[in-house]
Design a protein around this nucleic acid. Structure first.
Lengths: 116, 116
DNA sequence: CTAACGTACAACCAAATGGTTGTAGATGGG
DNA sequence: CCCATCTACAACCATTTGGTTGTACGTTAG
């Protein structure tokens, strides 16, 4: 997963309204206007939240007549969990050879020699 | 975990620089100025990123002389994972534990026989 | 003591975020 | 067809975010 994808994923999750939308849309069948009745904000504001979730890959939209049905992607949490796993794996794998990397300047980084 | 705590947690994770700081500080012993040498930005900017991570409970700081050593909280990822679990648990409660299972295996549409 | 280092923090700025209202385009019902 | 509904999107505004620079303060080295 790219850095930007992880950015979008965690950013989308970092808002209580959006997390609530995710919970409400697991069953699908929720139109955006129906959703917007649940929150103390305008239809357009909810539309924007849904757009953020969609760009993050957390929900999908499906047309039914003039309505747009929102559905939480069942694998959404799995992907977020994987992003956390990659974070954790990265640091565990790096731990033993970290000290050299830390001491170096990005400018004059020469992997063949280093403090030890 | 409160909504605000989850907000702070995911917001802190939604930035590539901050995720990199987490990776670099697992071993501890990194001063903020040492850290700031690794990024193309000012010391003050890195200081702010560390503050965001600290408010989210992802790192702790410890004084050593005039330095401030940053260390990633070993339980940090665990807490993020728990936040995801709570999200998912809320789904299950609302869904009556059916739709996700059905989506995976349309064949086993008998809930009395499903796993779990 | 003085100088250099590491940190803290304030002031400032551009861009993004989260909200609003208004307008316009599809779609379905009578 | 006409109208109400649902959606899309633009323009606008206040606040936050992510960066900068500058200044002040504590600590260590000489």
């Amino acid at each position: 997963m790219s850095d930007e994808a992880v950015d979008r994923l965690f950013h989308a999750l970092a808002d209580a309204t959006r997390r609530d939308i995710l919970r409400r849309c697991v069953r699908g069948g929720m139109s955006v206007s129906r959703l917007s009745e649940a929150y103390p904000m305008s239809f357009a504001a909810v539309q924007k939240h849904v757009a953020v979730l969609e760009r993050a890959g957390l929900v999908t939209k499906q047309r039914r007549g003039r309505e747009q049905l929102v559905r939480t992607d069942p694998d959404a949490v799995g992907r977020a969990r994987q992003a956390l796993d990659e974070l954790e794996t990265a640091w565990r794998g790096r731990v033993d050879r970290m000290s050299r990397l830390l001491a170096e300047d990005p400018e004059k980084s020469d992997p063949t020699e280093g403090p030890d």
